[in-house]
Design a protein around this nucleic acid. Sequence first.
DNA 1: CTTACATATGAATACATGTTCATATATAAT
DNA 2: ATTATATATGAACATGTATTCATATGTAAG
Lengths: 119, 119
Amino acid sequence: MTKRKDDVCEVFCINEGKVASARASMKPDGTVFRLAAVFKVLGDPTRTRIISALLQEELCVCDLACLAGISPSAVSHQLRVLRNMNLVKYRKEGRIAYYSLDDDHIASILTAGLKHVEE
Amino acid sequence: MTKRKDDVCEVFCINEGKVASARASMKPDGTVFRLAAVFKVLGDPTRTRIISALLQEELCVCDLACLAGISPSAVSHQLRVLRNMNLVKYRKEGRIAYYSLDDDHIASILTAGLKHVEE
DNA sequence: CTTACATATGAATACATGTTCATATATAAT
DNA sequence: ATTATATATGAACATGTATTCATATGTAAG
């Protein structure tokens, strides 16, 4: 196998035209990367469960820990990940932090995913 | 910290009522798990790019390798992952395998995700 | 001012995962 | 038949990641 690592595209594409047009109509790399990042964050069972629970109503860390069946510490770690991706937001009431979905798109993504999963 | 690992839920929930109702309205564990699995599969930049390219038209392994900028071998591995999750299907034409999205839900999921990413 | 509690966070460990490399299979061409 | 090509696959390695544990922060209560 002596394919050169660079310019693989130019030389080894089978349908250069299709590749060129596909490339032209694709979202920019940054967008694809951020999209992947969002899906990756949603792609952990614990976090999916958390988001799924928050579809109904806001919940505090402890309650989410109950629902997910893991320690509050683990939930807190995961909530930070979700926060960093702008998937959840929270409000503080005393020492209790109530988390909720950050915007309506999140529910749409979940719903679309469920349609595929539930066939 | 002397919290028992079992029955954490019963003892340490702050709002038992909210937790109970959230639990009742949540999808079964199996569904949540499969949903997470779908998102996890979509959560890799290479696979997101592949799916994104296939939104336009079917493409063969080599062309996808060009678009993703990785080896055909790596693409083939990823295509198997996507196949296992029923996200893509393929038809053979001679020795060339043309891949396409398996159903319309996939596009919906991508679109919903893009709305969040593009704000 | 302590004490208790809800949450957050850093470090460490155990586990999963994506790519590469080598090789296999299958189909077309010579 | 032999060679070239398109794809598939197994093993290995390197990297990433989710949980746990220990600890820190901040808030309410005694």
